[in-house]
Nucleic acid binder design. Structure first.
Length: 450
DNA sequence: TTTTGAGTTGTTCGA
DNA sequence: GTCGAACAACTCAAA
C-alpha cells in the first residue's frame, strides 16, 4: 500500500531550504501539496496582498508541475476530507508562531488531526532565544547578541523528485483575484525571490547601510514580501552575508524580524493591544477626517503624503517613511497606533503581523525597546534630510512637481502660492509635538520620592 | 549583590 | 552655520 502525506504550505511557498518538505518526502511515497485559502486571508487582505499571494501560488504550482491543491474554506474540514479521500497517513507542516497561525493549528490538532512540525519561518524559532534565567528578552541588542551566538542550520537543497498527487477538478481553484501585472507588483515566487536576492547582493548590499535611508533611491533589499510568504528562508539570506559593516546592518534587519516574532510569540495579545499598558490610558483622538486625510495622502505634508500614496498605489512603503507616517499619525494626529497598523496590514504585500504591530508600537513609544518618548519625527526635516531634492515626493505627488527643492517640503512657504490641488496642512507640527509631549506627561510614571 | 552604562532610525534650544 | 546638552523610564549585562 502506498503511503501518502499532505504537505500543507502556509508561510513557506518554496521548495528549496524547506526541511519540513524534505521530511514529508522522506516519510511517504506520494505527496499531496496543499494550500488552504481560509477566510482570514481572503477577507482581510487588500487587492495588492491578494494579487501577490495569487501570483506566488501560481509560481509554486508551476514548480510543482501543476500539482498544488488550492482549496478555500475551513482547514479542519478540508484536511478531514482529503485524509479520507486520499488515505493520507501524515500531515507535514512548518511550525507557525503568530497568533492566528497558532490558534488555527491548535484547532486542527484538537480536532484529532496530527500535524508533524519541522522547522519554522525563522532562522531560530521564536521561544528559543532566552536570557540565562530562561525568560524572554525585552530589549533588542541583548537579543541580537544571544541570537547571533545561538546559530542556525545551514540551508538544504530542494528535493530532486516529488511524486505528487494531481489535484481533482475542484481541488485547484487558483484564486482569480486581481492579477499582479495590472497592479505593477514585484514578481512573486521562489525563483523571483532568489533572483532578487542575488541582484541585491550584487548591486545593493555593500552600500545598504547608507542607501537604505533614502526613499528616492532603490537602496533597500525589497525582500520583505518574499520573506513574508517564505519564498526564501532567512537562513538562505544569512548564509550569504559576510562581516562588513553593511552586511552587519542587514543581518540586524533580519534579526529585528526574528526579535519581533519572538516578542509576539511570548505576548500574543500585542498584535492588537498595547505592550506597555499605561499607553492605553493616554488621551487620543478618534479616527475622523484627519485619519482619512492620512489614509488618502492629503495631510498637506508632502513627505507623509507621498509615502501614503506609495503604499496605496504600490502595496509597499519605504522603511524610513513607515516611521515618518507612523510618527505623524500617533504624535501629530494623536490617533492610536492600531488604526495605522490595520491600514498598513490591508495594503502591504510584506505584511507581517509581528513586525507591523511592533514596528508601530516602537514608534508610538509603547512597545518593547520602544522609541524614546521625545523621539518625534518632524515630517519636514525628515524630508529635507532623506529626500533633499524632493525626487521621492515628486514621484508620488505630481501636482507638486513644479516646486523646487527649497519649497517642496513646505509648499505653504512658496511665495508663488501655486499648489494646484494639493491641500493645506491639516495641523501645525510644532503645536502638535508639544501637545503630544503634554499627553505623554499625563501618563508619566510617578516615582515616589526617596 | 550592587552599581553602572548603554540602548536602530530624533529634535530643539542655546551657546 | 555648528555643536553639545537635554529630553524618562526601564531592561539587561558587564563590572
Amino acid at each position: 500500500m502506498i503511503s501518502r502525506s499532505i504537505f500543507w504550505f502556509r508561510r513557506d511557498l518554496r521548495l528549496s531550504d524547506n526541511p519540513a518538505l524534505l521530511n514529508a518526502i522522506a516519510n511517504s511515497q506520494e505527496i499531496l501539496p496543499l494550500f488552504i485559502m481560509d477566510n482570514e486571508i481572503a477577507n482581510r487582505a487588500g487587492s495588492h496582498r491578494r494579487a501577490y499571494l495569487a501570483a506566488s501560488l501560481r509560481a509554486l504550482n508551476g514548480s510543482l508541475g501543476g500539482s498544488l491543491h488550492v482549496i478555500s474554506g475551513d482547514p479542519v474540514a478540508i484536511l478531514r476530507s482529503l485524509i479520507s479521500k486520499y488515505d493520507i497517513s501524515q500531515i507535514h507542516v512548518a511550525s507557525e508562531f503568530a497568533p492566528y497561525g497558532v490558534a488555527r493549528d491548535k484547532r486542527v490538532v484538537e480536532s484529532g488531526i496530527e500535524l508533524i512540525r519541522t522547522g519554522s519561518p525563522y532562522a531560530i524559532a521564536p521561544g528559543r532565544v532566552v536570557k540565562s534565567d530562561g525568560t524572554p528578552y525585552r530589549v533588542y541588542t541583548p537579543f541580537f547578541r544571544a541570537w547571533t551566538s545561538h546559530g542556525w542550520r545551514t540551508p538544504v537543497a530542494a528535493p530532486q523528485n516529488i511524486k505528487a498527487i494531481a489535484p481533482g477538478k475542484s481541488e485547484q481553484r487558483l484564486p482569480d483575484w486581481d492579477i499582479a501585472s495590472e497592479l505593477d507588483l514585484p514578481p512573486a515566487g521562489e525563483e523571483s525571490a532568489q533572483k532578487r536576492w542575488r541582484d541585491f547582493q550584487t548591486n545593493g548590499l555593500d552600500n545598504y547601510d547608507q542607501a537604505r535611508n533614502f526613499p528616492g533611491v532603490d537602496g533597500t533589499s525589497r525582500m520583505g514580501h518574499h520573506l513574508r510568504w517564505g519564498e526564501i528562508h532567512p537562513r538562505t539570506i544569512l548564509d550569504s552575508l559576510g562581516g562588513s559593516p553593511a552586511h552587519e546592518v542587514y543581518r540586524k534587519e533580519i534579526a529585528w524580524r526574528e526579535f519581533y516574532a519572538d516578542v509576539l510569540y511570548h505576548n500574543p495579545h500585542t498584535s492588537r493591544d498595547y505592550y506597555s499598558k499605561r499607553f492605553a490610558g493616554m488621551r487620543y483622538e478618534s479616527p475622523d477626517g484627519k485619519f482619512l486625510a492620512w489614509c488618502e495622502g492629503k495631510t498637506g505634508f508632502p513627505f507623509v503624503d507621498a509615502a501614503m500614496r506609495q503604499l496605496v498605489e504600490t502595496g509597499w512603503m519605504h522603511n524610513r517613511l513607515r516611521m515618518v507616517v507612523a510618527s505623524f499619525l500617533v504624535k501629530d494626529l494623536h490617533i492610536e497606533w492600531h488604526h495605522g497598523a490595520n491600514f498598513f496590514m490591508k495594503y502591504l504585500i510584506d505584511n507581517d503581523v509581528a513586525s507591523n504591530s511592533h514596528g508601530w508600537q516602537w514608534t508610538a513609544g509603547c512597545g518593547t525597546d520602544a522609541s524614546p518618548y521625545f523621539r518625534i519625527f518632524n515630517p519636514v526635516e525628515q524630508g529635507r534630510k532623506f529626500d533633499p531634492e524632493g525626487d521621492y515626493i515628486r514621484k508620488y505627488i505630481p501636482e507638486l512637481g513644479h516646486l523646487s527643492a527649497k519649497y517642496i517640503h513646505e509648499p505653504w512657504q512658496d511665495p508663488a502660492g501655486n499648489r494646484n490641488s494639493y491641500p493645506d496642512r491639516i495641523v501645525d507640527h510644532t503645536v502638535e509635538r508639544l501637545e503630544s509631549l503634554a499627553r505623554l506627561a499625563e501618563i508619566k510614571v510617578v516615582t515616589p520620592e526617596s
